[in-house]
Design a protein around this nucleic acid. Structure first.
Lengths: 341, 341
DNA sequence: GAATTTTCTTTACGCGCGTAAATTTTTAGT
DNA sequence: ACTAAAAATTTACGCGCGTAAAGAAAATTC
């Protein structure tokens, strides 16, 4: 590595004995230049560590290589995990991902989209807040920027939607719970942030009907994204009011279930499927933390890999010109049997 | 909002009846123009929604308004939380934060810093991976970019270090445990990713000596950042080998403690401070999930707000020209008493 | 080896803005 | 109302690169 500082592409081109337009072509797509030329540029790159100024690059390019990844709440390990997965796929495909969290705030979600717009991204992978989102703003954004929506769908916005099959999730785990013990009650937030919650409730109701059982839905109060606390407080309240009609509780999501488990502990109840246990608790999502609850949480897990792969590929295809009609993909989940139910 | 699309600052200046250099000045600092002028620009802004091209802006500015935030692992809610905190402080101070995670990978950490460099940020808030970091690369980066290091320190790198006082953390909680029951064993990773772990071990040893107790350190194997699993497996192994010389276990961090709690559950041991319990477990960090373990985890919490405020302010000061000599700030933690110990 | 195709070089312009200097206009001070 | 100071305008240049066009050079084909 030589000491000499390269100031710009002009200098780098001169020093590597190639013309600047060709060097520019190389940086836009290394495979677009002859292999001998490529080799010369790359050996010069090793000597003089030069990197094109991204601001100057993106100013003139019709399309940048930027990809935005937006999740509702990065503090939720579920979104952190899927964001990580998406980020790596973007890098592998030669894009420059930038990560954003809406922090559970609809106003901030709009700000994030505004910021993103000024980055002139080639595309965006967006997991909307859901119910609380400013749908009109989302719609306007999706018209301006190629966007694949994931996790929770809002109308038929963007290029495509990729998420989990929430009907299958709940049907599957309800089926399991019915076969192995008392049919479950359903524990959820009254005003869930995420539209998937409604699908799960409906699926629970229809599954219970199909199996010939009487459903019980316990909807608890609470706004925002502090699901564990909402679950914990709601569970205590429900215990106090004796609203659980079964010893089995299916929670609308894992974070609610984690709060429920804490409440059970605080009530002195033993959770599990063994003899001494008095209550079974199951979640939904396959949350990274669900393995480490006490007892470990039985849940149905998103197919993280498949969701992110499908979403990322749909976006890359569209960016590269193969725009297909709007399509919704809903992937099945995998039941994870642990000790809690 | 008018239909007309504004293409550039020239057009926007003409339409708002102000000269372009003045408009440019406004966008660099709204307070640098006369209030009547500011009002005219802002009313035009409401009509024609124009935003300066950030690429063109940053190309010529000596200093961008970008601030990089780098954490070792965004999937860890502790880092997610502190990153969120820092992000909001950057926005409030008029900077444009960009979030990066090293994903626990030293090679990726270097890549992140490389990417960051090409963004020509005004400054960076960096939480290094620690032991695994490529220290030489960090050093080179800090020389090129104003950087405040937080969470875990690596030499005397950057403008300043801000973190927690790990000696105080462990001394304080060890003191508490000794006063309320059997003196604790110390449970840790043999090769911790984070240098804070060493401080905590030393502090445990010196605290035990000061109180006149015999220390026991249980170091478990395991590489990487899957602390819960390392804690769980390590705890099982330690139970099998009967290495715990006390009914009280102080874990080096909360995630290890969470794994420990899971192992205790799997061993059929009751954790807590009441009569029926056979073992006490405590953590360190004040991890967002520690409230929801079963039993809820007694821990000593970082002062998230103070750490991020101190780090952010140190960076902003330096960016604005007030460079002070390197300084290390270590903030005290707050004991959080819960049921586990 | 000549003809064709591919790749590279040369030349040139423009992107949208920062910024500096000189000049004019507006505001503040007494 | 006059003056000095502050702010805005005009003019002009440059940043580092994308990109287009035309011609030269190299590689490929038969």
């Amino acid at each position: 590595m030589s000491e000499q500082k390269i100031r710009n592409m002009e200098e780098f081109a001169r020093i590597s004995g190639i013309s600047r337009p060709t060097v520019s072509k190389y940086f836009n797509d290394p495979d677009s230049v002859r292999s001998t030329t490529r080799a010369r540029i790359e050996s010069a790159l090793e000597q003089y560590d030069y990197r094109p100024n991204i601001y100057a690059m993106n100013q003139n390019r019709k399309l940048t290589k930027n990809v935005g990844i937006v999740v509702p709440l990065l503090a939720d390990p579920y979104f952190a995990e899927i964001a990580r997965n998406l980020e790596q796929r973007c890098i592998a495909a030669g894009y420059r991902p930038t990560l954003f969290s809406s922090h559970g705030d609809p106003a901030f979600e709009v700000e994030v989209l505004d910021t993103l717009r000024s980055l002139k991204p080639a595309g965006v992978l967006l997991a909307p807040l859901g119910r609380a989102s400013d749908v009109a703003a989302l719609e306007r954004f999706c018209e301006a920027v190629p966007t694949v929506v994931f996790d929770s769908s809002v109308d038929e916005i963007g290029l495509a939607f990729v998420g989990s099959d929430n009907f299958q999730f709940t049907r599957h785990i309800t089926d399991y719970l019915c076969r192995t013990g008392e049919p479950p009650c359903f524990f959820e937030m009254r005003t869930p942030a995420n539209p998937n919650a409604h699908r799960r409730r409906h699926s629970y109701l229809s599954a219970m009907a199909a199996f010939g059982h009487t459903p019980t839905v316990i909807s608890v109060d609470g706004e925002g994204w502090a699901f564990e606390e909402i679950g914990r407080l709601g569970a205590h309240e429900a215990f106090r009011q004796d609203r659980f009609t079964s010893n089995t509780i299916l929670c609308s999501n894992d974070r609610l279930a984690i709060g429920m488990l804490t409440a059970c502990y605080e009530q002195g109840m033993k959770v599990g499927r063994e003899n001494k246990a008095t209550i079974r608790v199951a979640g939904q999502d396959g949350h990274p933390f669900s393995r480490y609850t006490c007892p470990p949480l039985t849940t149905i897990s998103h197919n993280y890999d498949a969701v992110s792969q499908t979403a990322a590929e749909a976006l890359f295809e569209a960016i590269e010109g193969n725009v297909t009609p709007w399509k919704s993909t809903r992937l099945e989940g995998r039941l994870i049997l642990r000790d809690s139910a």
